[in-house]
Amino acid sequence: MANSTTLTTGKQNIWGGGKSPFSVSYGKLMMWIFLLSDAFTFSSLLTAYGFIRYSFPSSQPNEIVKPMSHVSDQFVEEMQHTGLFSTEHWPLPELVFNHFPFLHGIHLPLFFVSLMTFVLIFSSVTMVLAVEAGHRMAKKEVANYMVLTILGGAAFLGCQAWEWTQFITEGATLHGNPFGPTAFAALFFIVTGFHGFHVFSGVVLNVIIYINVLAGTYEKRGHYEMVEKVGLYWHFVDLVWVFVFTFFYLI
C-alpha cells in the first residue's frame, strides 16, 4: 500500500509506525469507523426503501390541489376517489406530508419537513461552534453552544413526534395506510424511526457531554476532544437526514 517503497527516508513517512498515519487519536478514528459502518446500516434501510419504491409505479402528477389552497377534513378520502391515493402506486409525498401545526386545513406540502431540516442543520452549526470553542478551551462558550445543540435536537424530536402523530391519526400503521402500498408507511416509520433513535441517542450523548463540560472534566484533561467525537456523530445524524429528506419527501 501507501508510499513506503524501498529507501524512503525515515521521519517523513507517516505510515512508518510509532504514530497515527492520519494524525488522529484512536478515539476519533474509532468514531469515524463506527460512522462508516453506521452509514452502511442506514444504506441498507434506504436500499430496501429504493427497492420497494421502484417495484411500484409512480403516481399521476397532482393537478388538483394547489399549494396554500384549502383542504377539507376528508382530504384523504377525496384523494382516494381521484385515484391519487391507491395501493397500486406510490403516493406523492406532497399530498401526504402537507400539514403544519396550528395551520389546520391548508395544503402546505413540505413546509413542516423543511422546518425540521433547518432545525437539524442549525443544531449541527451550534455543535460545530461548540467544537471550535473547545479548540480555544473556552469552557463557557462550549457549554452555551452545547445547550443550543441539545435544544435543537429536542426540537427536532418534538417535530418528528408531531409528524408521526399526524401521520398515525390519518390512519397510517405498520401494516396498512390510506395513502398507498402497505410498505409506504412501514418504511416511513422504520427509516425515520431509526433516524430518530439516532437523534435521541445523540441528544443523550450531548447531555452527558454538557454535564462533563460543566463539571470541568475536559478542562482538566487538557482538551475538548470528546466534544469533537460526539460532534462527529451529531453531524452524521444530520447527514443521514439530508438523504432521508431527499428520498422520502422529494422523490
Partner: peptide, 25 residues
C-alpha cells in the same frame, strides 16, 4: 440526489472537519 450529495459534501467537509484531515483518512 445530486443536490443531496452536495449538501452531504459540505456537512462532511466542513462540519465534520474532513477537509482538514489527511488524505488517507
Amino acid at each position: 440526489i445530486a443536490l443531496g450529495i452536495v449538501k452531504a459534501f459540505y456537512i462532511v467537509a466542513v462540519f465534520m472537519h474532513m477537509k482538514f484531515e489527511r488524505k488517507w483518512l
